[in-house]
Design a protein around this nucleic acid. Structure first.
Lengths: 374, 374
DNA sequence: TTGAAAGCGATACCAC
DNA sequence: GTGGTATCGCTTTCAA
C-alpha cells in the first residue's frame, strides 16, 4: 500500500513544549529561561547559551496567547489611508482587517482615515505616531511630504508599510502593490492582441509625477513596442484625480474627432472619459481598458463598451501589507523591500465572480468574533 | 481641522471588563456567567437572561487569548490531496499552511497526500477520519467514491471542504474553487477579442465526466456564442490526464493538417499538445490559451507561442478553504455552499510578477516564526 | 442550579 | 544570578 500518506507532518510544536519543559530539562527555573529568551540582564552567558540551544533544539515557540494574556499589550498598528477613492482604499482596509482577524484582540488596528490624498496625511500620521503603535500602513502621496514622517517613525522604531505607492529613499519597511509596470504592460499587451491597427492611442492618467502612474505608462509603452507597433502616437492626458478635469480634457481630446484606435485609463477615474467617448461617438467601437472596479464601471463592462479592466486586488494588498508588518514586528522577519502582485484582467465573463468575491470579502471583514457558539 | 481621523475605532475589548466583573456586578460566580454566555445546560432561564443583558450592556467581548490559553485544544484538520499534479496541489497545500499559520500550535494540520487521483483516495480519507480531526480538505475525484466517505465524516461530525472539484449531493460543508464556468468563458471571451475568424477550434480537456471540465467547456462555448461566432466547429479532445494519450490524440488531430483557428487547453496537461502543434507547424501562429502555470509552460508564454494561460490561484483556494473550515469549526459560522474565485488571465507581461509571487508564497509557508524579538 | 478552585504558558517581581 | 510564585481571563471539573 504505497498510497498511504507518509509524512503525517504536524505543524508547529509537536506537543506542548513551553518554557516550563525547557526549564525542567535543564534543571533550572522558568524565570531563568525567560531571562535568556528575552536577552534580559542578570544571567550568566553560559547559562543563557545552554538555554538558547535547547530552546532551538526543541523548536520552542512562545505561546502568544499566554504572552498576551499576561502582558496585556499586543501590538497595535495604525492604518492611515485616504477616504478618497473609497472603494479602492476600503478594500485595502478590509484586507488588513481580514488579515488581522486571527490575532483577535491581541493586535489592535487603529483606523486613521483622512479625507483626501495629501491634505490630511501629515496630521494623521503624527496622530498615529502619538499612539503607541508598532506599525503604520500608509499610501504615500507626495514623497517629500512623508519622508520626514517616516524618518520620525524609524526613529521611534515604528515599522512603516507603504501600499499602492512607494516612498523611495526612506526607511519604510516594505512596499506592497500591484506591480505598476506589469499593470500598464498588461493593458498594452492586451491591446496588441486585438489584431487592430494601433496608430494613435490615448492614455488617461492621474499625474506622471506619481511614480506608479509613470511606471504604468512605461509598462504600457514597452509592451506596445514589443507587440511590434512602432510610430504609435500617444495622447497622454493627466487629470490629477479630478472628475471635472478628466471630463474637460476628454471632451477636448475626443471633440477633435480625430481617429483614436484605443484608450487606456490607468486610474479609477474612467467614467468622465467614457462619457465623453460616448458623446463623440467613440463608444461603442473603440477598445477601452480601464482600471479598478466600481459601481459605475460595471455596466460598461457588461455592455462590452469597456473591453476589460485591470483590477488591482486591493484586498490582497492590504492583507499582505499586514502580514509583512506582523511578521516583522512579532518575529523580526524582514520582508523583501517590495512585494509586487500581479494585476488581474477582468472581462465580462469574470466580472460577476469577482464582484461576488469582493462583496463577500467585505462582509467577512465586518464579522465580529463575538461570543463563540462552539 | 476636518482632516483629523475620527473613528479611532479600536478592535477588541475597550478596557478589561471580563467575565469576572459581570459576576461581581450581579453578585454571582464566574462559573454561572460562563454557563450563560455559552448556552450551557444547568442554569435557570432568568439567571441566564440577566447575565446576557448585563453582558450586552457592558459590551462584553471575550478575551480570546485567555480562551485559547485555557482550552488550548485547537482543532486538527487533515489535508488529503493528490501528489499528482504536483505544482498545482502543492500550491493549495501551501495556501492551507499559510492560512493556518496565525493559529500557531493550536491548529494542527495533518498532511495525507496520496499518489494519484482516485487510487489512494479512499484509504487516505479513512486514515484521516481515524485521527481525531475536526475537518478534512479533499479534492474529490469521482463523486461515487467519496460519497460514502463524506457521509461517514458527517456522521462523525467532521466538516469536509472540497477544493477544485465538488462532491454534489453530499453533506460537504463547502466547495472552494476557481469558477470553472468563468474559467472557460474567459478563455472564450479572450479568443473572441482577437478579431480573427473562429471557424474551428480545438479544446483539450481531461474528461467531460468531471463536472469542472464540463463546466469549463460550457463556459467556453457560451462565450464564443456570445462573441457572435456561430457555426463554430469544436474538436473536443479528452485525454484523461495522461501525457501519452494527450500526445497521441494531439498528433492525430493536428496531423490531419486541417485548419484550426485557435486552441484552448483546459487542464495543466498542455505540453504534449503544444509539442504536437509545433511538430505540425501550428505553432507559432495559432492562438493558444492554456491553464495553470508550471515550468514547462513558462517558455511558451515568454516566446508568445502561448498567448495566455488561466491561472487558478491554487494558493488562494487552499487559504480560503482553510478559513472556511476554521470559522465553521471555531465559531460555528456556516460558509456559503460554494466559494468561487475569479480566474486570473496571465500573459507575458504579468508572468514574472506572478512567478515571483508563487515562489515567495511557497517560501513564506516554510518560514519558522522562531523566538520573538519583541 | 450554582459556587469554588485548579490550571493553561508566559511575565514580572521578590527573595535568596 | 537564580528560584520561586502571583497573575492575566477563561474553561472545566468537582463539590455543594
Amino acid at each position: 500500500m504505497k498510497t498511504a500518506g507518509k509524512d503525517k507532518h504536524t505543524k508547529g510544536a509537536a506537543k506542548s513544549l513551553g518554557i516550563k519543559e525547557i526549564a525542567k530539562i535543564l534543571g533550572i527555573s522558568i524565570g531563568t529561561v525567560d531571562r535568556a529568551l528575552h536577552d534580559r540582564p542578570g544571567i550568566r552567558p553560559d547559562t543563557r547559551q545552554r538555554i538558547m540551544e535547547t530552546a532551538a533544539n526543541l523548536g520552542y515557540r512562545p505561546n502568544l496567547a499566554a504572552r498576551f494574556l499576561k502582558s496585556g499589550k499586543g501590538a497595535a498598528i495604525a492604518v492611515c489611508l485616504p477616504r478618497h477613492i473609497f472603494h479602492f482604499f476600503n478594500e485595502i482596509r478590509s484586507g488588513i482587517h481580514h488579515a488581522a482577524m486571527p490575532y483577535g484582540s491581541m493586535w489592535k488596528l487603529y483606523d486613521y482615515s483622512y479625507s483626501r490624498f495629501e491634505e490630511g496625511e501629515t496630521a494623521i500620521f503624527q496622530q498615529a505616531l502619538a499612539q503607541d503603535v508598532k506599525g503604520i500602513i500608509i499610501a504615500p502621496g507626495k514623497v517629500d511630504t512623508v519622508k520626514p514622517l517616516i524618518a520620525e517613525a524609524a526613529r521611534r522604531n515604528v515599522a512603516v508599510a507603504c501600499v499602492t505607492s512607494d516612498a523611495p529613499g526612506t526607511q519604510r519597511l516594505v512596499y506592497v502593490s500591484v506591480d505598476p509596470f506589469a499593470n500598464g504592460a498588461l493593458a498594452g499587451e492586451f491591446l496588441c492582441c486585438l489584431n487592430r491597427p494601433l496608430r494613435r492611442l490615448a492614455v488617461f492618467t492621474n499625474s506622471l509625477e506619481l511614480t506608479t502612474q509613470a511606471e504604468k505608462l512605461r509598462g504600457f509603452q514597452e509592451s506596445i513596442r514589443q507587440g511590434g507597433f512602432t510610430n504609435v502616437v500617444l495622447d497622454i492626458v493627466e487629470n490629477h484625480d479630478s472628475k471635472k478635469e478628466a471630463a474637460h480634457l476628454a471632451d477636448q481630446l475626443f471633440g477633435r474627432r480625430e481617429e483614436i484606435d484605443a484608450v487606456y485609463v490607468s486610474t479609477a477615474n474612467a467614467l468622465p472619459v467614457l462619457r465623453a467617448m460616448e458623446r463623440y461617438g467613440f463608444l461603442p467601437g473603440t477598445p477601452v481598458i480601464a482600471t479598478d472596479i466600481f459601481p459605475g464601471l460595471v455596466d460598461y463592462i457588461r455592455s462590452r463598451k469597456v473591453l476589460a479592466t485591470i483590477y488591482q486586488h486591493p484586498e490582497f494588498v492590504g492583507r499582505i501589507a499586514f502580514e509583512a508588518l506582523y511578521r516583522f514586528i512579532q518575529h523580526g522577519a524582514v520582508p523583501p523591500s517590495q512585494i509586487m502582485l500581479p494585476p488581474l484582467l477582468v472581462m465580462r465573463s469574470t466580472l460577476d465572480v469577482l464582484l461576488a468575491r469582493i462583496r463577500s470579502g467585505t462582509n467577512a471583514a465586518r464579522e465580529l468574533p463575538g461570543i463563540s457558539a462552539m
